[in-house]
Design a protein around this nucleic acid. Structure first.
Lengths: 153, 153
DNA sequence: AATGTACTCTATCAATTTGATAGACTTAAT
DNA sequence: ATTAAGTCTATCAAATTGATAGAGTACATT
């Protein structure tokens, strides 16, 4: 399950990506637009800043902006920062591997085999999808919706 | 993340599958062999029984056994029983859909699109892998290991 | 019918995680 | 100096997770 933290993060990042290069955006602005508790969002953005996803400027005229281009920020990275490893079991995590206690032989553990598949499938998607990719998909669909003839399914 | 509950369940089921048609197995036997707290395992098995995955017999000579053939029990089913929906967000769950509050337009939500992909990839794996499949894979690898020439990587 | 075995059910609990809030502090622009 | 805005640390309540306890019920055997 994606935590609220990670979900809020993605919501905020999506706005920051959409308005990339239009100068810093205020926390409170982001919080209002996405209906996120403001103080809670602060913590999230701070964490993202620590990991280079965001940069910020203090004082008047300050705010947050992306630390790198929207096509260089991958969902996998963001989610790992806020929710930890993508893997369903620590013993199949690439970024935070940990041996299962009491697993006699990791190589022949059936549960592990399947969970590794799940981890790989998840990572394949989230580590290849950037904020820019998401935006593109949203725009394509939004345009389609307004352009499409009525009464379609 | 897979909970301990679900992991314990799969461990126990794997044994019950391996020894399918050899009569009921005691909770305490399963608990010992997999080093699972016995009372905790009771709850898990009971839950699986409620959902038809297991059957049981009380009294002397009793114990638990699979409610259907190992090739008809899918990991997706087991995990959903113990951990709830596979989907990272309720709004992309097939089995427990719930609208996000405050999502203006579900159809054009970028986060949702990607999470739907993740859910589908996960479900594709877990809903197509049965206990029998897992067993087969384990056996294949176990045999390989003992048969393979030494000093290989 | 009595006994013992083994699953069943309900309650409870401690620890952890999650989502959220509060307030003092620092930096920068005017 | 003043005001705007991010930073940092602490704290909290609620929910979830992992686990334990004990009384109850069904069944087989003698």
């Amino acid at each position: 399950m994606l935590s609220k933290k990670a979900k809020y993060a993605l919501q905020a990042l999506l706005i920051l990506a959409k308005e990339y290069e239009q100068g810093p955006i205020l926390i409170s602005n982001l919080a209002q637009r996405e209906r996120i508790p403001r103080k809670f969002l602060e913590l999230i953005l701070l964490e993202l800043k620590k990991h280079g996803i965001l940069q910020s400027k203090k004082g008047k005229g300050g705010g947050y902006f992306l630390g790198k281009s929207p096509n260089a920020i991958y969902l996998g990275h963001v989610i790992r920062i806020l929710d930890g490893p993508l893997a369903p079991l620590p013993c199949v995590s690439q970024t935070a591997y940990m041996k299962c206690e009491e697993c006699q032989d990791e190589k022949t553990c059936g549960i592990r085999m399947v969970m590794k598949e799940v981890r790989d499938a998840t990572a394949r998607i989230l580590d290849s999808t950037s904020l820019a990719d998401m935006l593109k998909r949203v725009e394509r669909l939004t345009k389609q919706q307004t352009t499409a003839p009525p009464h379609r399914r």
